[in-house]
Design a protein around this nucleic acid. Structure first.
Lengths: 182, 182
DNA sequence: AGCAACATGTAAGGAGTTACATGATTAG
DNA sequence: CTAATCATGTAACTCCTTACATGTTGCT
């Protein structure tokens, strides 16, 4: 009985947790901090979700409680099957590319607004993207990247965000010219 | 009693349906086709979800069944409150920007693979993005854009997809050089 | 002593997916 | 006649969010 074979649906939170436990053991609380900071823009997760998923992962033997601390703190460590599962996910499964875009969905319906209102929307998007881009540039500059794995892949991830923000900013500015010309 | 004030959480499917009903009445079946084709890459939705949401929208008075056809077909028409709600959503609410990216999440953990495997992953992403980009360029070329609202905003949406695909392709190719240099 | 931070857990409900279930109509 | 398409509805389950609930520890 009991969760014999967890079906392999999305479940990326599961793999995010496994991935974060590769380098060092951590508690749910520690992991929550990571989700709220460095992973916030890639895979947001709530406290509730994290504690629940950690329990399931422990249940499945992919992680174990390796140490208990004060205040009921439980430090989890990745097991060999856990690492194997992480590798399997990375090499044998295709990333879901079904990204819903609220920003873009709205564009489809801007025709129901006045051109003025539509431009306000696009202008807001441009401003937001420009701000994000500036923040990411500043962040990039502030980090002293060396060439260990964490730095290499961390930097690649940050560069994705930087390019994405720039693309959105430029697209929104271009879109403004299309609406203005009407 | 009964859904007095639907709390304004995400609920973008609701607004997508309202938006699609602006130009002309349609049935759940018609709308499903639209979600499977033109909206598939922006806001995917299943048959199950669509029928359920249409029932709720009708219940809330934002749409009405304006005509019944063969096979129990129900054609829905947008009401004035429905159009007002669509405009409110467009002008008074901020788009959710919490986009989870499965592609990017994996990048964070590529360090657990061999450089060869990591490169395979990035190479796959580059290939996929390049293919998508080519398809969107072809689609853009095949459409005879005029300058009505649908064309203007449809083209702006398509251009977003085109630029996004190009960005992903170029990023993945750049990332490959970063991993190779190790 | 008191407050901020540490630390975990559960309940209720919204949103999305897959699968099941059923039937009518039309084109060949 | 029969297969493809049209057409709707529901059930079960996962995932995610918000909110509630509770208690400990360290610092000043």
């Amino acid at each position: 009985m009991s969760r014999v074979e967890g079906k392999l649906l999305g479940m990326s939170l599961r793999h995010a947790l496994l991935g974060l436990l590769v380098d060092h053991p951590a508690s749910g609380y520690d992991l929550l901090k990571t989700f709220d900071t460095s992973l916030a823009n890639v895979w947001p997760a709530t406290q509730s979700q994290i504690y629940g998923e950690l329990a399931k992962l422990a249940d499945a033997g992919l992680i174990v409680v390796s140490e208990q601390g004060p205040r009921g703190r439980k430090e989890y460590t990745l097991t060999d099957p856990g690492l194997a599962e992480l590798r399997r996910w990375l090499t044998e499964t295709e990333p879901q590319r079904t990204t819903r875009s609220d920003v873009l969905l709205r564009v489809f319906f801007l025709g129901v607004l006045t051109p003025r209102q539509a431009r306000d929307y696009l202008d807001g998007q441009a401003a937001h993207a420009a701000e994000l881009h500036a923040n990411l540039e500043a962040l990039d500059d502030s980090i002293d990247w060396d060439d260990d794995d964490l730095s290499v892949y961390g930097r690649i991830a940050l560069e994705y965000g930087r390019r994405f923000a720039a693309m959105q900013r430029d697209w929104a500015r271009w879109a403004l010219t299309q609406v203005k010309s009407k």
